[in-house]
Amino acid sequence: MKSLLRQLLLISAVTSAMLSAPLAAKTLADVSLADEIILSEQALQLNGAGIRSKFFMDLYVGSLYTPSPSQTLDSVLNAPRVAIRLNIVSGMITSEKMQDAIIEGFDDATDGKPQAIQPQIDAFMALFSAPIAEGDQFTLEAVKELGVTAYKNGEKQATVEGETFRKALLKIWLGDKPAQKSLKKAMLGD
């Protein structure tokens, strides 16, 4: 009887410890993703995340944070505030390669007509002029009717204003011609 009582107490203690422990964050390519981030004193929830790869090499983990679950581009564009986070997982990414990829992304996002937002694109590209290293983290906070505030490794870099620019930036990963279709699907929680 004492043995049974000890087993029940042990099971109870283990169960209690498991229920009170925080849930482990999602991990992709050895990057631990926060379930929630706070930007400009606003909480955003992890909507989805995936890995951007090229030639079978993982380049970065892309994650989307939203105020509520969003499974379509329209719901993301209409949200008052969202964030895309890029965690660099490859030393092969350089500032030049990142700039080239983003320029190509803006070209795709604007159907080959980026001229209307070229000054904003140029300002945004300056954020990627410093060296990029494996382990760097870029957070792009997109606020409706304001624009995009960029952070590198948690430090605010600059804000690029403009609603058209904000939408084009989000379309780089979530639009009709995304950087990678499987990454788009994962970020939208599919």
Results as ranks from 00 to 15, higher is better:
133 A>S: 13
118 Q>C: 00
181 K>C: 00
12 S>E: 03
42 Q>T: 15
93 I>H: 01
173 W>Y: 15
136 D>C: 04
55 F>C: 01
114 P>R: 13
68 S>M: 06
72 T>H: 07
174 L>Y: 08
131 P>W: 09
141 E>M: 10
101 A>M: 12
89 V>N: 03
36 E>R: 15
173 W>H: 11
170 L>W: 03
77 L>D: 09
65 Y>K: 06
33 L>Y: 09
86 L>Q: 03
72 T>F: 08
109 A>Q: 01
54 K>S: 11
106 F>E: 02
161 E>Q: 13
47 N>E: 04
11 I>M: 14
180 Q>I: 02
177 K>G: 01
54 K>H: 10
77 L>F: 06
119 P>D: 08
16 S>I: 12
150 A>H: 06
105 G>H: 09
81 R>V: 12
21 A>S: 14
159 T>G: 04
102 I>R: 01
141 E>N: 11
171 K>M: 14
168 A>L: 11
124 F>D: 02
147 G>E: 08
153 N>L: 04
147 G>V: 08
104 E>Y: 05
41 E>M: 03
58 D>E: 12
149 T>I: 04
186 A>V: 10
51 I>Q: 05
149 T>E: 10
163 E>R: 09
58 D>H: 13
101 A>K: 08
135 G>M: 05
127 L>T: 10
32 S>R: 08
97 K>A: 11
102 I>D: 01
149 T>A: 11
127 L>M: 10
103 I>C: 07
99 Q>C: 05
85 R>V: 14
26 K>S: 10
146 L>W: 00
174 L>R: 08
86 L>W: 04
189 G>R: 05
186 A>S: 15
182 S>Q: 13
161 E>S: 13
31 V>A: 01
35 D>L: 05
18 M>D: 00
4 L>I: 14
89 V>F: 02
12 S>F: 15
12 S>Y: 10
38 I>Y: 03
181 K>G: 05
42 Q>N: 13
15 T>I: 08
64 L>N: 02
184 K>C: 09
3 S>T: 13
175 G>E: 08
158 A>D: 11
161 E>W: 01
102 I>S: 09
175 G>R: 09
128 F>E: 02
132 I>R: 05
107 D>N: 15
141 E>D: 14
147 G>I: 06
189 G>A: 09
85 R>A: 13
103 I>S: 12
180 Q>L: 14
20 S>W: 11
34 A>N: 14
126 A>H: 08
86 L>Y: 02
40 S>H: 14
3 S>F: 11
136 D>Y: 06
190 D>P: 07
120 Q>S: 14
100 D>Q: 14
106 F>V: 09
161 E>C: 00
13 A>V: 15
126 A>I: 06
78 N>C: 00
181 K>E: 14
160 V>S: 06
116 A>K: 14
38 I>M: 12
9 L>A: 15
98 M>N: 03
91 G>P: 03
113 K>V: 03
188 L>K: 05
4 L>H: 01
123 A>Y: 01
53 S>D: 13
62 G>T: 04
116 A>W: 02
38 I>K: 15
27 T>D: 07
26 K>A: 12
97 K>F: 10
134 E>M: 13
157 Q>W: 02
80 P>C: 00
101 A>V: 10
91 G>H: 03
17 A>E: 01
141 E>C: 05
68 S>T: 12
60 Y>F: 15
105 G>I: 11
145 E>M: 10
49 A>M: 05
116 A>R: 12
109 A>D: 01
159 T>E: 09
106 F>N: 04
104 E>L: 13
